[in-house]
């Protein structure tokens, strides 16, 4: 029993079920599978950021720049398509740009040994500023053939394509995190970087690759947002890093690194999606939503902090 209680997934799983019940009671329009699935579009994008951040935070770092990365990729992809590049090529280059921006973060953190929160606070502004310098405050249209991935349902499963893509990444990268040597290194770096280094874990390379991964996923999310909205703007997804980080720590990932799981992050993302959908449906003002998200972040970290202390072996 105690084992279940202290698992990182426990809290978000319970809250998710409660949120579903609350949503059903609160609004007659909430329990509508079609609507809920249609609402997953934005959360598929958030989800990709969450997957990357799960690695980053388990390794004891943070990446505040993911949403700005997403916005820059969205703008760059649309611009490339606008100057005549075929959309598949533009999208591929877009994802790679995301990886490149991630590599920039990774190099500064892993090799220049700078604190990740400051590096990515800088690139949060830098990437967003690059997007604004590229676009001004105008929007650029995406070729109409590329618009509407979120309204394509996957055969058999019946879930929208972006959500399906996100689930595939959750499974593949979840297995990477929990079943491969790279995953073990990620935990090792987050638990005790020096010890990991002496246990011949290539710590800089591990950190570098994690940031590249987060960047690639943010880039993919940027391409997906282009398809969902049909236009690219520099202010896309502003502040989304906050929601993604909230999901990760709410999912039981310890903010100081070394502990967490992919399923926990996924459940927490679903929880946030359900909560937000409810609030929007109830026309709860955006400022109250802002307060709720911020509080949730702090409470989530506090809870996992307590959980970690509980699950730690008692010292004699």
């Amino acid at each position: 029993m105690r084992k279940i209680l202290t698992r990182p997934e426990f809290v978000p799983a319970v809250l998710l079920i409660l949120a579903f019940i609350a949503g059903t009671i609160q609004s007659p329009y909430f329990l509508d599978v079609r609507y809920l699935l249609d609402s997953t579009g934005p959360y598929a994008e958030t989800g990709l950021l969450v997957i990357g951040l799960t690695f980053v935070i388990i390794s004891g770092n943070i990446d505040l720049s993911v949403a700005s990365n997403l916005a820059f990729v969205a703008c760059a992809t649309a611009k490339l398509a606008q100057i005549g590049l075929p959309m598949p090529a533009a999208a591929t280059i877009g994802v790679l740009i995301g990886g490149l921006l991630g590599a920039f973060n990774g190099a500064l953190v892993a090799y220049a040994k700078l604190p990740s929160f400051l590096v990515t606070l800088g690139t949060l502004a830098l990437f967003r500023g690059m997007a604004q310098a590229l676009m001004g405050s105008a929007s650029v249209q995406v070729p109409s053939s590329f618009v509407g991935a979120d309204r394509l349902d996957l055969p058999l499963l019946g879930v929208p394509l972006p959500f399906g893509i996100m689930i595939v990444f959750v499974v593949v990268l979840g297995l990477t995190l929990h079943r491969t040597i790279f995953g073990r290194w990620t935990f090792a770096v987050g638990t005790n970087e020096e010890a990991a280094f002496f246990a011949s874990v290539p710590t800089p390379a591990v950190k570098f690759r994690i940031f590249v991964l987060a960047g690639l996923l943010a880039g993919l999310a940027g391409v997906l947002i282009d398809s969902r909205l049909g236009v690219a703007r520099f202010d896309h997804a502003r502040g989304l890093e906050l929601e993604a980080i909230t999901a990760v720590v709410l999912g039981g990932v310890s903010i100081t690194g070394g502990r967490g799981s992919m399923i926990g992050s996924l459940l927490a993302l679903l929880l946030i999606a359900v909560l937000k959908t409810q609030m929007i449906l109830a026309n709860i003002t955006s400022e109250v939503q802002l307060t709720v998200t911020g509080t949730l972040l702090i409470v989530a970290v506090a809870i996992t902090g307590v959980a970690t202390r509980l699950s730690a072996p008692r010292k004699a």
Partner: peptide, 10 residues
Amino acid sequence: IITTLGTLSV
């Protein structure tokens, strides 16, 4: 960073 990111919104 987490605390103040949270209170930034709150």
